[in-house]
Design a protein around this nucleic acid. Structure first.
Length: 417
RNA sequence: GGAGGGGUGCCUGAGUGGUUAAAAGGGACGGGCUGUAAACCCGUUGGCUAUGCCUACGUUGGUUCGAAUCCAACCCCCUCCA
């Protein structure tokens, strides 16, 4: 491996963030010499980001920690139009207020990973709506459009694959790469930004931006992409039973976030430790070398560090403790998600499937009944196979709760009030 | 504007008058084996306090004892032509 001059590039390469780079040596050279500003664009269609963006977020964290300045670009302008690449054409357009609210949520997530501020090296968040919304079509075509050759645009994967599969590609969508390229130019002019990073699927867009900057302003810009993070089993990362793994505690509890990392596949542990924690590499190498049951220790470490980064050390410790009590002692951890139920109701007895639904372990009574029939429902860790079984005050433990389980991993408590 | 094709459950996708809550696969969930892993095997997968009832095959009407299936209008998507 080449000896890198800049801490920034070395960190990214060593930790597995690098997939492609337009000119790695020159970027390394530049980053070693001066503070650089780099941006990554994010969607703001949801009020939070999920683990799918975490690689990107970690990269910006490393950027800042190694002395450079991150720009978080929100795709407010593009979101407004509605990204046509999603298959459901009926996707509703977001209002300015929605977008604004989403940006607030995302900024909150981000502020755990990078420091925002006004000083040099402080992260800034910008919205491409600021410049895209005001574009005048004719001048834009004349100044920017001339630099894009259709022949070349057609050769980009994002376009080529669509055409080959005879799937529709709207003109709007075709223009996305131009708008994204323009973002880079604009950020270079406004913030002296010289590097755009992103997922490997963004390579085409990024390269376009780099070229546009060179052609229009003669700017030396760089592009850098991360590999697509999939699980060793080939599945896409970041989906669980409940849906996306959100980074915002309102949308996914720190306990569930911890559990997500705890359940990492063996084959992914080392890679994830490098990407999603800041443990020293030699320590990771040791953890990664663990085999069989021992690798569970590495998973706990991964969960602890990943959760600490996102939710803070307190929440990480609490999640670890809850998990330890629940899984290792089989005890009732009082920190599990809890539903309150009127004591009078419990006196009469509540049918189990109803309670499972109320505790959010199942989405409908039918699903709960199936769970019971299938043998996956437990009350205080005792399997219940009787579909019409009831839960009453007699089931309340010494701690004053009833523990419900759906399968081995999902638990909730019922507390009479 | 013209011609043709199509809209089915979480997704892909079969189904062209009745036993179709809708094949098959994927995903997801549960069980088994394990280590809260992977792989593998088995089961479940519209709702409802449920031998029944309700809702569902783009929308609204119609034909029929009976419609995802036939007819009409409308909406949307795709392909080719202009």
């Amino acid at each position: 491996m080449t000896a890198f001059k800049s801490e920034f590039v070395r960190t990214l390469v060593e930790r597995g963030f690098m997939h492609q780079c337009t000119d790695l040596d020159a970027l390394d050279e530049l980053a070693a010499r001066q503070r650089i500003t780099a941006y990554i664009g994010y969607d703001c269609t949801a009020p939070s980001l999920h683990v799918g963006s975490l690689v990107q977020i970690m990269m910006q964290r490393h950027l800042q920690k190694t002395g450079h300045q991150p720009i978080v670009l929100m795709g407010g302008g593009t979101t407004k139009v509605g990204d046509p690449s999603g298959k459901d054409a009926s996707r509703q357009l977001l209002s300015d207020a929605d977008i604004e609210a989403n940006m607030v949520g995302i900024r909150e997530v981000f502020s755990r990973f990078v420091d925002f501020g006004d000083g040099p090296g402080d992260a800034v968040m910008v919205n491409n709506d600021d410049w895209l919304n005001e574009l005048a079509y004719i001048p834009f075509l004349r100044d920017m459009g001339r630099h894009f050759s259709i022949n070349r645009m057609l050769s980009f994967d994002s376009v080529k694959l669509r055409l080959e599969r005879e799937q529709p590609l709207s003109f709007l969508e075709f223009n996305y790469m131009i708008l994204q390229a323009y973002d880079f130019l604009e950020l270079n002019r406004r913030h002296d930004c010289v590097l755009q990073m992103g997922g490997s699927d963004q390579w085409g867009n990024i390269v376009n931006g780099v070229e546009l900057g060179r052609r229009v302003d003669g700017a030396a810009l760089f592009g850098f992409t991360t590999p697509l993070i999939t699980l060793a089993s080939g599945a896409k990362m970041g989906k669980t039973a409940q849906g996306a793994v959100w980074l915002n505690p309102d949308m996914l509890s720190p306990y569930d976030y911890w559990q997500f990392w705890r359940n990492t596949e063996d084959a992914d542990v080392g890679r994830f430790l490098r990407l999603f924690t800041e443990l020293p590499l030699d320590e990771i190498a040791k953890l990664e070398a663990l085999r069989d049951a021992e690798i569970n220790e590495a998973k706990k470490t991964l969960a602890e560090h990943a959760t600490t980064l996102c939710h803070g050390p307190e929440a990480a410790r609490a999640a670890a403790e809850t998990a330890r009590q629940t899984f290792e002692e089989g005890a009732v951890a009082t920190d599990l998600p809890t539903v309150e139920v009127a004591e009078a109701e419990l006196n009469d007895g509540i049918v189990l499937f109803d309670l499972l639904r109320r505790a959010d372990l199942c989405q409908s009574n039918g699903e709960a009944r199936r769970l019971i029939k299938g043998g996956g429902a437990r009350v205080n860790d005792a399997p219940v196979g009787e579909e019409m079984a009831k839960v009453s005050m007699a089931d309340v433990s010494a701690e004053g709760v009833v523990k419900l389980s759906a399968g081995k991993k999902r638990h909730a408590l019922v507390r009479p009030v």
